[in-house]
Computed example of a mutant assay.
Amino acid sequence: MRPHRRFPIDDVSQVGEARRAAQALAAELGFDEEAAGRLALAVTELGTNLVRHVGPGRQAELLIGPDAVRGPDPAPALQVLALDRGDGMDLERCLRDGYSTGGSSGTGLGAIRRQADRFGAFSAPGRGTVIATRFAVRGERSTVPPRPPAFDIAGLSLAAPGESVSGDAWALRRDGAQWSLALADGLGHGPEAALAADRLMALLDEATPGLLASPAGFLDSAHEPLRSTRGCAAAMVSLGEGGAPLRFGGAGNITGRLISGVADRSLMSQHGTLGMQVRRLQDVVYDWPPHAVLVLHSDGIVSRWSLAETPGLLQADPAVIAGWIARDHLRGRDDATVVVARRHEGQLGQLERA
């Protein structure tokens, strides 16, 4: 996954720059004219809203980058996030056509939701707003909603200041009812760090499903192949459908947490660096409480963060949660990646009935 590009939005001229970058990425991915048009409209509307309603000096920005796999046989997709630290908004009212606080026609946010393949948002008074949208490469959009997958997973990756590539990488693989989610942080940053992280993602793609059933076993198997690189910290989670607990393995400073409204549990990684020095890793099994979300992130995000002051955020789209964490807790001097996973409601029902 290439990193998201960041576009600070303080005036209208910067909106055009973001739109042109989004169109270039869409062309690379093979977006047709209809899909590319929807994307361009959304970037323009999101950026214009930031200029009109947030204004300069409020750390408003657009993030544009690839979106994660979300369902069976997915098309390539782009993710556009709008982040700000403004006064917040009444999302329910702002999504109604005709409502406006800035003298416009009041169709912008509602139009964005209609144009996007996926839309999520969260806002809090005095804390700002995060809006996350997804646009798929295919222009034809089915009128029949697809069956939701067992897990809803989204994330974003940002390169260190001055770098065009990220030394972090993450990937999701599905093998029937088994899901494997991995995150790697190559030592340092820049191209050499990216080579190490990307090598682990390639090994994930090549591994047999049996090996992936044990995250620690897979990471152990990757240690020797990674010796030709500068090495990386890494974590992997094996997720089973049907309300099964998750299985976790990690080496180094990848943070994992299971967070609900009543609990916040850290997932324990072991010391070491894959490709350099690491003791034999062990799987740790954790119960996944109902309504809890799983968060994985690299050390480009401050480790001691809390969502306690934003009630309701944990019910938002995973992409929105990832954007909120990155907005508020970015160290700003290293690559940073945040991945958020939620068990689908159908899975929750199975767990609660068990």
Rank of each mutant, 00 (worst) to 15 (best):
I9D: 08
S13Q: 13
G16V: 11
R20F: 06
A27Q: 14
E28R: 06
G30N: 02
D32C: 02
D32H: 04
R38W: 02
L39A: 13
L50W: 11
L50D: 08
R52E: 15
R58S: 13
Q59P: 15
P74L: 14
V80Y: 08
R85M: 09
D90S: 13
D90P: 08
Y99H: 14
Y99R: 05
S100V: 13
S100C: 12
S104G: 11
S105P: 11
G106Y: 15
G110N: 12
R114F: 03
F119I: 00
A124C: 09
P125Y: 13
R127H: 01
T133G: 05
E140R: 05
R147L: 01
F151I: 12
L156C: 02
G167H: 04
W170D: 03
L172G: 04
G176A: 05
Q178G: 11
Q178T: 06
S180W: 06
L183Y: 14
L183N: 13
A184M: 01
G188Y: 09
G190Q: 09
R199Y: 01
L204A: 04
E206I: 03
S214N: 12
E224K: 05
G240A: 11
G249M: 04
G250M: 05
A251C: 10
A251D: 06
T255W: 14
G256V: 07
I259K: 08
V262E: 15
A263M: 15
L267H: 09
L274Y: 04
Q277R: 05
Q277A: 10
V278D: 02
R280S: 00
Y286K: 00
G300K: 04
R304W: 12
A316W: 13
A319S: 08
I321M: 10
H329E: 09
A336S: 03
V340R: 03
A341H: 00
R342P: 13
